[in-house]
């Protein structure tokens, strides 16, 4: 069902866990009815210096969460904002069609984190 790369990411996910001093946290999904991802970003000079994730979900959800963290680490906030769900799936070498909704999770959680980060930056400037 899954290709080797997906299974490898599922089995050895990168950047799992929390970042206690995260500059931004993003979430996507619903605890009630399905897959949920939480992403933590450490940002320095506009660059994503560190990232962690926690995911509740199927194999594809965990693998795409892991893949996303690899893609965005070291990227600028603006570059990371360009990363789409499709990019994550492509980088994994494809996901089963029925599983594409799972991969949506990762980029959406990231975009939520970046929105939270920008909000926070904005409020800091205003202060």
């Amino acid at each position: 069902m899954y290709n080797e790369k997906v299974v490898e990411h599922f089995n050895n996910p990168r950047n799992v866990g929390e970042l206690p001093d995260a500059d931004a946290i993003g979430e996507n999904g619903s605890f009630k009815c399905g897959d949920t991802m939480k992403i933590y970003l450490k940002v320095k000079d506009g660059i994503i210096e560190d990232v962690r994730f926690q995911t509740y979900g199927c194999g594809a959800a965990i693998a795409s969460s892991s893949m996303l963290t690899e893609i965005i680490k070291g990227k600028t906030i603006d570059e990371a904002l360009q990363v789409s769900n499709q990019d994550v799936a492509d980088e994994l070498g494809g996901l089963p069609p029925l599983k594409l909704h799972c991969s949506n999770l990762a980029a959406d959680a990231l975009h939520d984190a970046i929105a939270n980060y920008k909000k926070k930056q904005g409020s800091v400037v205003k202060d």
């Binding site: 899954y2 299974v7 599922f10 089995n11 897959d35 509740y56 979900g57 199927c58 194999g59 959800a61 965990i62």
Partner: peptide, 14 residues
């Protein structure tokens, strides 16, 4: 509880 069935299945399969 707190984990999803398919990820358990996949792990068992491995």
């Amino acid at each position: 509880k707190y984990i999803e069935g398919e990820s358990v299945l996949l792990s068992l399969d491995l």
